[in-house]
Design a protein around this nucleic acid. Sequence first.
DNA 1: AGCATATTCAACCAAATGGTTGACGATGCG
DNA 2: CGCATCGTCAACCATTTGGTTGAATATGCT
Lengths: 114, 114
Amino acid sequence: MANPLDTVFAALADPTRRAILAMLLEDDMAVTDVAEPFEMSLAAISKHLTILTRAGLIAQEKRGRVKWCKLQPDAMKDASVWMQGFGQFEPVNLDAFERFLKSELGSEPHSPES
Amino acid sequence: MANPLDTVFAALADPTRRAILAMLLEDDMAVTDVAEPFEMSLAAISKHLTILTRAGLIAQEKRGRVKWCKLQPDAMKDASVWMQGFGQFEPVNLDAFERFLKSELGSEPHSPES
DNA sequence: AGCATATTCAACCAAATGGTTGACGATGCG
DNA sequence: CGCATCGTCAACCATTTGGTTGAATATGCT
């Protein structure tokens, strides 16, 4: 999976990881805090974060004993351009996006803010 | 993997499948013709097409003994909106997209037009 | 020093993925 | 009818994925 599009799309294919990205849209977070809303082990979340990091979608910076996770949305750019090439999808509709996030967060198996 | 975003992103995570979609951008194609440029069995391509179909990214219609594959770009819409919510990526740049397609097609392990 | 907190590592497991091959059903053609 | 072509199915295989648990490392606090 050398191709960056492979890793980005694969990273986005998991609902837990998409939920994490959505959480990071609000603010940078420590690993423990990212994990808190999910019903799975910290180790599992740590693995998800590694995948997101390798895809370039987040950056992790260790300050003291806590590792901060920061969204890196530019990593989605190429993937976004790739997809847009197929459809000329209407320009970003932020309302749609927010409804989207809400519905996704609300219905995931391991969702935060249930 | 009930969530449509899961299946769409997962489908797009494979370079062979992205290459197939790019080919279908040109024109509808029969399964055998889709498979021709790839260095893998017809059965393997058939599986990829099933995955693309289940993701809604293509539709397959059987006419006579040949099954035609048709791109269904609307299936990317939600995923595209989801991603755009993160970055406000610049409006579609078709030139970028074409360069992109070319470079991807040209460097894949099992690429068409080698 | 000694303990608590933050995070990862290692080993393990079940299930999914991406590929193969060979047989098979369905359709078209001479 | 008999044969070739189109495409899928079934069984198999190796690898990856997403999770677990328990131990280990690193930092901070008193």
